[in-house]
């Protein structure tokens, strides 16, 4: 079966007063239909910029997509004319953003913001769009949706707002749903509900999902594949189970050790990765992770590691990936 989305060697740069920064530096991955990919990394690792580049939502300037291709059902998203891309956005590929308070337009009712999607992509009459929107709100668990749809975003609670965002994204039954840290701005209890909702809806509609987060625990709940990003590059990629059981990259291993585990008998001390996330204007040579790495060698300082494969769907960019398991 052909992949739904194949990204090859994506590079995105930002020009800043300190110089040009490579926020995304040669990212490649591919996504099968129905798959759910979790993209994990610290802030500044380039995970958000990667998906924003796919949708061409990077502010230009200062941002610029330097190179690469993103083949979505045979069309290269990065080279498509703006008008064609627009008909894909919100229809075939939809997005959910981090903060539902700032991501919904405060000046427009929820009704206006939902129905306009259907009116644009499905050419629905306002009346039909309204019925459809109310139905979708009901599906994402908004109580008395027929009434609430006339409210403004600030009249909803944080969790409800994110549900509205999700409803908005799912209106056209997109083939690909990109969720950019959808739970970061929410309370912990609400986070779980929203994740559950995304997981449920994914199975119901068979939607392919890219979930961006800095929290491996969240990935475990929703995704079947994981890409770990560091300093604009994919450090390790693999099936959820494999990554969790046999992580190969020291960075992934560090991330996993910093997760609280329920199965530990004793209250084990949580470890954190030493050092700070890298400054993109002053990237270390070779493997950007080496200043924080426990197993670094001379080689790591000189050259970025090529991919080391472990089976068909698991690779890590680390010179010492094989020695460690």
């Amino acid at each position: 079966m052909m992949a739904l989305l194949t990204v090859n060697n994506l590079c995105t740069t930002f020009s800043t007063p300190e110089g040009v920064v490579r926020a995304v530096d040669g990212v490649s991955f591919s996504l099968e239909r129905g798959e759910a990919l979790g993209v994990v990394g610290e802030s500044g690792s380039g995970k958000s910029v990667t998906v924003m580049s796919l949708m061409r939502l990077i502010a230009t300037p200062p941002g610029r997509i330097e190179s690469g291709e993103a083949i979505f059902e045979g069309r290269d998203l990065l080279k498509l004319p703006e008008a064609n891309l627009r008909s894909i956005r919100g229809d075939e590929i939809a997005m959910i953003f981090q903060d539902p308070l700032t991501s919904l337009n405060p000046f427009l009712t929820v009704k206006r913001q939902l129905t306009e999607v259907l009116e644009t992509h499905r050419r629905m009459s306002p009346k039909k769009a309204l019925t459809e929107s109310i139905h979708m709100l009901e599906l994402v668990g908004i109580p008395s949706p027929a009434k609430r749809i006339n409210d403004y975003p600030h009249e909803f609670s944080g969790g409800m707002r994110q549900r509205v965002m999700i409803a908005m994204a799912l209106l056209c039954r997109p083939k690909l749903l990109i969720a950019d840290e959808p739970t970061t701005a929410l309370d912990v209890t609400i986070q779980a509900q929203i994740l559950e909702l995304i997981a449920d809806l994914r199975h119901e509609f068979g939607t392919t999902v890219i979930l961006i987060t800095h929290n491996l625990g969240i990935v475990a709940e929703v995704c079947d594949h994981v890409a770990v990003m560091y300093a604009g590059k994919i450090a390790e990629y693999g099936k959820m189970g494999e990554i969790f059981v046999r992580p190969r990259h020291p960075y992934t291993q560090g991330l996993l050790r910093s997760l609280p585990r329920l199965d530990e008998k004793r209250a084990a001390r949580l470890e954190s990765i030493v050092g700070q996330p890298p400054d993109l204007t002053l990237l270390p040579t070779g493997c950007a992770f080496h200043p924080r790495c426990e197993v670094k060698s001379e080689h790591c300082l000189r050259e970025f590691p090529s991919a080391v494969r472990f089976g068909d769907h698991h690779y890590a960019h680390c010179w010492h990936a094989e020695d460690r398991s």
């Binding site: 939502l57 008909s87 894909i88 997005m95 953003f97 991501s103 337009n105 405060p106 644009t120």
Partner: peptide
């Protein structure tokens, strides 16, 4: 503002 990015992500025309 973020919500303008949302509006673009929804595929609305620049006019809208």
């Amino acid at each position: 503002q973020d919500f303008i990015r949302t509006a673009r992500a929804k595929g609305l025309s620049e006019r809208v």
